[in-house]
Design a protein around this nucleic acid. Structure first.
Length: 640
RNA sequence: GCUGGAGUAGCUCAGUGGUAGAGCACCUCCUUGGUAAGGAGGAGGUCGCGGGUUCAAUCCCCGCCUCCAGCUCCA
């Protein structure tokens, strides 16, 4: 065995070092700055701590704070730091798991006493003390028996059975001072990297997510390399709180949620304006793209749901009722209804593809604990459609749907170029044979490739009847939300025995595509409220312009201006109360009205309005016609 | 559904074993004021619902409902 090995660095250069050289030593050999900045290394694709000796020829990348993977390492280490502090303060605590997440980290504990929010500052303070000590993380590798013995010795009961589930025969621990934890690693070199941590919440959880299992307490937190990044993140959390659609929705009088209808939103007149504008946007597209709109019943016989497969796969989420000794279900999806429409008469290949859109209300009995404003409801409507086509039309139909999505998203304020695309594949419990699933998954993947769209796979997340493409938008705070979805389904046409007569005079089975562009209107409106912080694009704003009189002398003029705007199709109000204009502007801002039209004696004289934007920008006086031209353009073009 | 927390005026929140308060919003009046809060007065509450303890419960106890933070699930 040669005493030296070759390491290939990201720039392609080779470096010869003695066998057993650590990542940290290589970094030091490259430069003093890198030695200090090295968080971890990537050896042949595996992330390892800087203290790891390299035993053979390998590729090596040194991770610094700039790398995405480095942040995960930091947060994972922060989770350990949290465990150290909790063990110090609450002896007798047993450890669950403590991973890094997209936003930070958490650790699950089984503590002798219940933890509360008040305990967090104490724990955080202890974490910072330990961080300041700069305790190194040392890796210890044991075999299975050794690992169990060690866990037993320190009293970590929960993790002992887990040892048998680890596929590798080498079980690793990381020690820092008196603390040790069984963990795959890697970690930052020492705890001094972890100064910028913040604990955010404590909540319930279960050992390995099993609701019948051991109850645990989860402490969540976040960590960053720099104080500035941490501050920015906390600021974003604050901002998200300010944008909470439940609060803004109430302030703008868009909708309400009431105990009489848990999870069933009440739409107020102003909320319905947004709802209807979005519907209008979609209907325009439907017309252009050769869709017909249908409306199928809300309540349908049990038999139908047994045939469609919902009874077997979606029953827990459905509402049932008994009428005249017959069982019915309230529909959670539109697909079976449209299948009945399709199958109601013979179909010819000449009329394919049959495209049916439907906006019916859908009820889904979601678990009470999952309800959340408009983002998770039990009553919603989707901009739903089902397309029945010949297999060979699949690609072009999907292409058309993607094009529609690309035309719709900019109007609601999302850049289609920034949409994240995922392909969700067959779940464990699914309808149909594996071969059609493969066919359907391939069809979706092909369609995406044909469109030149990059996508990642979301394994096991498909609908029970078929795989789906998910379109995720990124909002103003960098959060992502799934909106659009396209699903290919070979099963339901089979179950409903749907067919069309081909050119050859024979019966053929159509393929069914389920698709939604916006997703559900409820959820989308919730997302849009938060994305725009309630400041909707003008075309969507419940009130588009409000006329503010300066004194009561302009009251009549203000009302006349409002009526002139209304006649031109602008949603306008007039505020002719006896308040000062500053106070009226303040109210208009709180209502998020995009245009405030101030009318005083001068404007009344000249037949003008003084235009102020929601942003505070003052456009000065202009003729009513000029203002109308401006706002009509924004409305007609749906300027976002 | 599960774990933990909460529910007092439209909103944000004080408060007490002897049936309740503030600010904002609302209504009236005064003020006629030029781009984020002019002033005064008034009205408004079954203190989430049901039971219990007590001479007396908004307050203490039990059950339920709803909401919030998570778990899980998802449009």
């Amino acid at each position: 065995m040669s005493a030296s090995i070759h390491l290939q660095l990201p720039d392609g250069s080779l470096r010869q070092v003695p066998r057993g050289t650590t990542v940290a030593e290589v970094a030091a050999g490259i430069g003093k700055g890198l030695a200090k900045a090295a968080v971890a290394g990537v050896v042949d694709g595996n992330v390892v701590e800087t203290a790891r000796p390299i035993q053979g020829d390998a590729s090596l990348r040194i991770l610094t704070a700039k790398d995405k993977e480095a942040l995960d390492v930091l947060r994972h280490s922060a989770a350990h730091l949290l465990a150290m502090a909790v063990l110090d303060l609450f002896p007798g605590t047993d450890l669950g798991f403590g991973p890094a997440t997209d936003e930070g980290f958490y650790y699950d504990f089984k503590t002798p006493q219940t933890l509360t929010e008040e305990d967090l500052p104490k724990i955080e303070a202890r974490m910072k003390e330990i961080a300041a000590e700069g305790r190194p993380y040392a890796r210890v590798a044991l075999d299975r028996a050794g690992a169990k013995e060690r866990l037993q010795g320190i009293g970590y009961e929960l993790k002992i059975p887990h040892v048998d589930e680890i596929p590798e025969d080498e079980i690793t621990f990381y020690d820092s001072g008196a603390f040790t934890d069984m963990c795959e690693g890697p970690h930052v070199p020492d705890t001094s990297w972890l100064a910028n941590v913040k604990l955010l919440s404590v909540s319930g959880a279960y050992w390995r997510g099993d609701a019948s299992g051991v109850p645990m307490q989860r402490i969540r937190g976040t960590a960053f390399f720099t104080a500035k990044d941490l501050e920015q993140h906390l600021h974003r959390l604050e901002e998200a709180k300010k944008r909470d659609h439940r609060r803004i929705g109430r302030e703008m009088d868009l909708f309400s949620l009431q105990p009489e209808g848990p999870g069933f939103p009440f739409w107020h007149p102003r909320g319905m304006v947004v709802y209807n504008e979005l519907t209008k946007l979609i209907r325009e597209q439907l017309e252009r793209r050769g869709y017909g709109e249908v409306r199928t019943p809300i309540v349908l016989s049990d038999e139908l749901w047994k045939r469609s497969g919902h009874y077997d796969h979606f029953k827990d989420n459905m509402y049932f009722l008994e009428v005249d000794e017959r069982s019915f279900a309230i529909k959670p999806m539109n697909c079976p209804g449209t299948c009945l429409v399709y199958g109601h008469r013979p179909r010819s290949y000449r009329e394919l593809p049959v495209r049916m859109a439907e906006f019916s209300p859908l009820h889904r009995n979601e678990l009470s604990g999952t309800l959340h404003g408009l983002l998770r409801v039990r009553l919603m409507a989707q901009d739903d459609a089902h397309v029945y086509c010949a297999p060979e039309d699949l690609q072009s139909e999907i292409a058309d749907m993607i094009e529609m999505l690309q035309q719709v998203y900019p109007a609601i304020g999302f850049d289609p170029a920034e949409v994240i695309v995922k392909l969700a594949t067959k779940p464990e419990k699914a309808l149909g044979d594996p071969a059609s699933w493969e066919k359907a998954e391939a069809a979706l993947a092909d369609a995406l490739r044909a469109q030149g769209m990059a996508f990642e796979v979301n394994p096991g997340e498909g609908a029970f009847y078929g795989p789906k493409i998910e379109f995720h938008v990124t909002d103003a705070l960098g959060r992502t939300w799934q909106c659009g979805t396209i699903q290919v389904d070979f099963s339901m046409p089979e179950r409903f025995n749907l067919s069309y007569v081909g050119q050859d005079g024979q019966h053929h089975r159509p393929v069914m595509i389920h698709r939604a562009i916006l997703g559900s209107f409820e959820r989308l409106i919730g997302i849009l409220i938060e994305h725009h912080a309630g400041r909707f694009p003008v075309w969507l704003a419940p009130v588009q312009a409000t006329v503010l009189s300066i004194t009561e002398a302009q009251g009549e003029y203000a009302v006349a201006v409002r009526d002139r705007l209304r006649a031109a199709g602008v949603r306008a109000e007039a505020d002719i109360r006896g308040d000062k204009v500053g106070s009226k502007i303040r109210d208009a801002i709180l209502e998020r009205v995009p245009y405030q039209l101030v009318v005083g004696g001068r404007e009344m004289e000249s037949g003008q309005v003084a235009v102020r934007l929601l942003s505070g920008e003052d456009l000065g006086p202009m003729a009513i016609e000029d203002f109308l031209a401006r706002i009509r353009h924004e409305i007609d073009e749906r300027v976002a």
